[in-house]
Design a protein around this nucleic acid. Structure first.
Lengths: 336, 336
DNA sequence: CTGAAAGCGCTAACAC
DNA sequence: GTGTTAGCGCTTTCAG
């Protein structure tokens, strides 16, 4: 039934049903311009012949037919971004789009390399993480003239659109919170995988808030490592070796904070009596610790969903805002 | 410089450099057939004109030029599959491929819907998770005649290729281990998000091993929920309410086991003295618990990497095995 | 080492 | 409601 290397195309269906391939195309796309009888015969023939549309050809001929969306995250192994990705994928696949992924390892150059690849597929739009991009990336995207959503780290002057929150404000909010709780000697433990500017923004907001209260950040320990449990454990050990008198430590994220918690437990340091431990991100695991971790919860799935919807709205020519703030939530917990 | 909606194409470069577009194509693809002088002029012009290749057109004209690979996972929010995805993406992007993702929520029907979409993009190959697929999925893939790798759950009769391990063996190994440790009254706490057959396979292997030793599985509690911390917590509570005399509980995965651990802690149940707790999967967080979790570590990143490499090897016509076993590792820990 | 011609499968634009 | 005509930008094939 199906000839030529096992694949039927519009023309094959047209021949079998006795209409033109244009009519077949119209029926299969559901655009107007055919009788009920034609529709029935065409759809039946398509099913019977196992017709699989060729989107490559469709995208090639129309450029508006692309249902490809590129999405780049810092790391595919990040729990937080897994949820963002999920939010994006659910929203997009429901609307008939396909998601092409990439990761940049917090490196704008890697991101540019990825963007260059993705743009060559002429996608309908692109979602990027963060606001730090190479000039080449920005150029490429502007030239391509497609919708671009920058997520996670809010920027008031996006390439096109932005969905996220302020990392600086997260740090600042935690700083103020700790001051109110009576903490006076705060430290910070972070990790610097390449140029993770967002963690730095949180640290800056944290330090500024402390400074404004007259109790500046006492010390910081920033490891050149990816922000995981062990760096949190050993980072805290190093920091406390230098500054045993700290009364609270703010961590780069929840994973590191849990590492810090483990260190405290192993050394008999009481939390929060002897030392407060504060994380960031809202990792699920944190919520079942013996003591609920003091942290900032980020609405990951929502960010992905909103970004996807903003992209599609733009594609459909609907009006929408360029910058969408998705609020984070400080969870007091029992460790801070 | 660049006309027609800001995009230069091969013909534009050809015009500027005074050669035919065929020669430009050859230079840009790096295939043989041009002089050094020509190469220089063409590449320079391409850069200057901001040429972005059109892979849609390339893939359209040759079908062997597709560098798209589809990858479907059960859930994008899974920590384990995040690592698999990372392994796939790293290996593939290094070789110039792009990854199109999807998730099936443990539902073969959803998987088929995704496969249908992806196949219409005429990808170079597809990576699926699990061995349970609808007949429609298998048909679609066979018709398409592209390389297919099924990962995670090993199958001896794959659609095309398979990379993974035996979930049954994981459960069986844990069962034998616990018997050797003197456990005699074992329970199981799981979660059944749709048709997660792999968790069931582990349970089956576990139960069979216990049975062979004459100390059959005492009871099981399988929640209709996704396998997270809270289901682990409450699942254990429910199970122990029915069977307070259990001496060890095997969990669907590490997250649930950690939930179980939290329950024990909240009730003053001593682990492992009063009750053994065993997980599965090798979640990173588990390794910094006060007591190292007894579990099975799955080489997630490796599986992704091996799957990607098998796919590419097949594309290049290199010989390779159809079924690759990637061994898991039982980690005794201190909770079992 | 280089070029000309043909065509991949589909859809926009226009006829009828 | 339906058909015809042109490509989209690239690669394959065949000539030089």
């Amino acid at each position: 039934m199906t000839e030529r290397k096992g694949k039927a195309n519009l023309e094959d269906i047209a021949r079998v049903t006795g209409v033109s391939k244009m009519t077949v195309s119209r029926v299969l796309r559901g655009v107007s311009g055919f009788s009920d009888d034609t529709r029935l015969r065409v759809t039946q023939a398509a099913v019977k012949m196992g017709y699989v549309p060729n989107r490559i050809a469709a995208a090639f001929s129309s450029d508006q037919a692309s249902t490809l969306v590129g999405m780049c995250v810092p790391r595919l192994t990040s729990g937080l971004f897994g949820h963002v990705l999920d939010g994006v994928d659910r929203a997009l696949s429901r609307l008939g789009y396909q998601v092409m992924i990439g990761s940049n390892n917090h490196d704008p150059e890697e991101e540019e390399a990825w963007v260059r690849q993705v743009v060559s597929w002429r996608p309908a739009g692109v979602i990027l993480s963060g606001r730090t991009h190479t000039p080449g990336t920005v150029d490429l995207l502007r030239q391509a003239g497609m919708p671009v959503v920058e997520i996670w780290d809010l920027t008031t002057s996006p390439i096109d659109m932005s969905v996220g929150f302020s990392h600086y404000d997260c740090g600042s909010e935690i700083g103020q919170f700790l001051i109110r709780k009576g903490r006076r000697r705060a430290g910070y433990v972070g990790a610097l995988s390449r140029s993770d500017v967002m963690g730095q923004a949180r640290l800056q907001g944290f330090a500024d808030a402390l400074m404004r209260s007259g109790t500046p950040l006492v010390d910081r320990e920033v490891l050149h490592d990816s922000p995981g449990f062990y760096p949190g454990y050993y980072g805290l050990e190093t920091l406390l070796a230098r500054r045993p008198d700290l009364d609270v430590v703010y961590f780069h994220n929840d994973e590191m904070a849990i590492g810090g918690l483990a260190y405290c437990q192993s050394r008999g340091i009481r939390v929060p009596e002897d030392l407060g431990i504060v994380g960031w991100g809202g990792m699920e695991a944190a919520s079942v610790l013996p003591r609920r971790l003091t942290t900032t919860i980020v609405p990951t799935t929502t960010i992905g969903k909103v970004a996807a919807e903003a992209l599609v709205a733009r594609l459909r020519g609907e009006a929408g805002q360029d910058v969408t703030v998705v609020p984070t939530r400080l969870v007091p917990g029992e460790t801070g």
